[in-house]
């Protein structure tokens, strides 16, 4: 049972790395708290649902559509919103409120457009029958999702560490003002990061129907809290940290489900608080951010 819980936690955690990744990127680059993160994920989930239902599009293929559309929407949205927010006295806090408003709007529109019932895509779409991993059997949907999540993390890693754009993005993460002073087009870099961040949330949404049972317009709230836990446990701005955070979350969740099931939702929160207190910068953080 323990071995199964750990393996399942690993796969589930990989998925939650993907869930946290977009949020982490946006926060890391812009110091903007995207409280609508879970709702963007929900939109990705519905996009995948409708693409599958109307055109029979395979979820793995709809990733590309979701990526393109979400980047295309996120980019201009950045210019519309973020520079204004950043001019305020306390952009971090103000962004919380702004995105709370946005989250309400998204949920309202989604409820009007899709209705409020549960939707999902059949699990067999991602492969039939369970897979055997190390003698344990897992649903095919889990294995595929875990694989795609790992690829997405690798993609973000390559973007941040192996491209010129990623290099300047990291410069903006470390110090926005200094980056500005060295002549980096901070807004352009941030806008791209914002678009990619939203798109990653959308892609995480594509797999939500498989990993989270079903999707509804109201699903975002729970996702938000978990995502925050994941990215803080890892460390902000570091995609590898998010992976670590996701896996720590996944394994602890599965462990709790096995041994103290009714307390299962408590441990991630305790984990988050403990890590913050013991190591506020997260598991992989370098800079200590305590006051």
């Amino acid at each position: 049972m323990l071995a199964y819980a750990i393996l399942a936690g690993l796969i589930f955690g990989l998925y939650f790395s993907l869930v946290g990744l977009g949020l982490n990127l946006v926060f890391g680059v812009m110091r903007i708290v995207n409280l609508a993160h879970g709702d963007v994920l929900m939109l990705g989930a519905f996009a995948a649902f409708w693409l599958f239902k109307l055109f029979g599009l395979h979820p793995v293929l709809s990733i590309f559509a979701v990526f393109a559309v979400f980047v295309a929407v996120g980019w201009p949205l950045y210019y519309l919103v973020v520079p204004r927010l950043l001019r305020a006295k306390d952009p971090e806090m103000l962004s919380i409120i702004f995105f709370f408003g946005l989250s309400q709007v998204i949920v309202a529109l989604a409820s009007i457009a899709f209705g409020s019932s549960e939707r999902s895509i059949p699990g067999r779409v991602l492969g039939s029958g369970p897979y055997q991993i190390l003698g344990q059997s897992f649903p095919a949907a889990w294995v595929v999702t875990g694989g795609v999540s790992a690829l997405a993390v690798a993609f973000v890693y390559l973007y941040l560490y192996r491209t010129r754009l990623g290099y300047v993005t990291r410069a903006v993460m470390v110090h926005r003002e200094e980056a500005l002073a060295t002549g980096i087009d901070v807004h352009r870099v941030s806008a791209i990061a914002f678009g990619i961040g939203l798109a990653l949330s959308g892609i995480a949404g594509v797999f939500a129907p498989f990993m989270l049972g079903s999707v509804t317009p109201a699903m975002g709230v729970d996702i938000n809290i978990t995502s925050f836990a994941v990215i803080v446990v890892g460390s902000l701005g570091n995609p590898l940290g998010t992976v670590l955070g996701g896996i720590a979350y996944g394994i602890s969740l599965m462990f709790m489900q096995t041994y103290f099931s009714s307390w299962a939702n408590l441990l991630p929160y305790l984990l988050l608080i403990t890590i913050l207190l013991v190591r506020p910068s997260g598991l992989l953080g370098r800079k200590v951010r305590s006051a």
Binding site: R31, E92, M93, V232, I273, L276, L277, P280, R289, S290
Partner: peptide
């Protein structure tokens, strides 16, 4: 928790 700052405190 007051040892934390900014968004960290909020989330914790």
């Amino acid at each position: 928790l007051l040892r934390l700052s900014g968004a960290y405190f909020a989330i914790a």
